[in-house]
Amino acid sequence: MKHLAFRAMVVLAVLAAFAVPSAAVTPDEVLDDPALEQRARDISAGLRCLVCQNQSIDDSDADLAKDLRVLVRQRLVEGDSDQEVVGYIVSRYGEFVLLKPRISARTAVLWAAPAIILLGGLAYLFFSARHRKAVSEAAPLSAEEQADLRKVLSSRDRDS
């Protein structure tokens, strides 16, 4: 029984090792010109499926992803450059459609936010530690202050 289970695990491991993610591009979408098709694939690999949101349009089976793949190919056939095609898609769907967003003035805060938060947290820890150290190292009471404290404590003990 153990031997059979081991064999099954080995077969599954081998199959998993050879599993290749399949592209969702259907044969009717493929361009006749191999160079244009390769450009289309390269562009599609960098565009996000707006339905799936974690896949490129090349890997998604969603209808919107298919429409975007067809649009990319149409623009390439019309003679647009790769940058023009991506620019056209971004102008229609926004920067979110890019799997690797561009660094711009609008996105700079998003790119810098983790570092800013980390530095702010470290600064808070540093200054709060310094403040705690200063409070714990307060000057000892003077003789007059100690006498006043004894008076207050002794009068309090008598009242209770």
Rank of each mutant, 00 (worst) to 15 (best):
M1Q: 09
M1P: 10
K2N: 13
H3L: 15
H3K: 15
L4M: 08
L4E: 11
F6L: 13
F6H: 09
R7D: 06
R7W: 06
M9D: 11
V10T: 10
V10Q: 12
V10W: 09
L12H: 01
L12N: 06
L12G: 00
V14Y: 07
A17F: 13
A17C: 08
F18N: 10
S22A: 14
S22G: 08
S22D: 09
V25W: 09
E29Y: 02
E29M: 04
E29W: 02
D33F: 07
D33C: 01
D33E: 12
L36V: 05
Q38T: 14
R39Y: 01
A40E: 01
R41N: 07
L47M: 01
C49H: 06
C49A: 11
C49E: 04
L50I: 07
C52R: 14
N54M: 11
Q55T: 12
S56A: 08
S56K: 06
I57M: 04
I57C: 03
I57E: 00
D59C: 03
D59Y: 15
S60L: 00
S60E: 04
D61S: 13
A62F: 00
L64H: 13
A65H: 02
K66F: 11
D67Y: 10
L68V: 13
R69A: 00
L71G: 07
L71Q: 15
R73T: 00
Q74F: 05
R75G: 04
L76R: 00
G79I: 07
D80G: 03
S81R: 07
D82I: 06
D82H: 03
E84I: 02
V85P: 01
V85W: 04
V85E: 02
V86Y: 05
V86W: 03
G87L: 01
I89Y: 06
V90Y: 02
S91K: 13
R92Q: 14
G94S: 04
E95D: 14
E95K: 11
F96K: 13
F96D: 15
F96Q: 14
V97K: 05
L98V: 00
L99V: 04
L99R: 15
R102C: 01
I103M: 10
S104M: 08
A105I: 15
R106C: 02
T107I: 06
A108H: 02
L110S: 12
L110W: 11
W111Q: 12
W111C: 06
W111I: 14
A112H: 05
A113Y: 10
A113F: 10
A113G: 05
A113D: 01
A115P: 05
A115H: 08
I116L: 15
I116C: 11
I117D: 03
I117G: 01
L118F: 13
L119R: 12
G120H: 03
G121V: 07
L122H: 06
L122S: 06
L125E: 10
F127L: 15
A129F: 02
A129T: 03
R130N: 04
A134R: 14
A134M: 14
V135M: 07
V135W: 03
S136D: 06
S136H: 05
E137L: 13
A138H: 13
P140Y: 08
E144Q: 13
Q146T: 14
A147R: 15
A147M: 12
D148M: 13
L149C: 01
L149G: 00
V152N: 08
V152E: 14
L153D: 08
L153F: 04
S154M: 14
S155P: 04
S155Q: 15
S155A: 07
R156T: 09
S160Q: 13
S160F: 12
S160C: 07
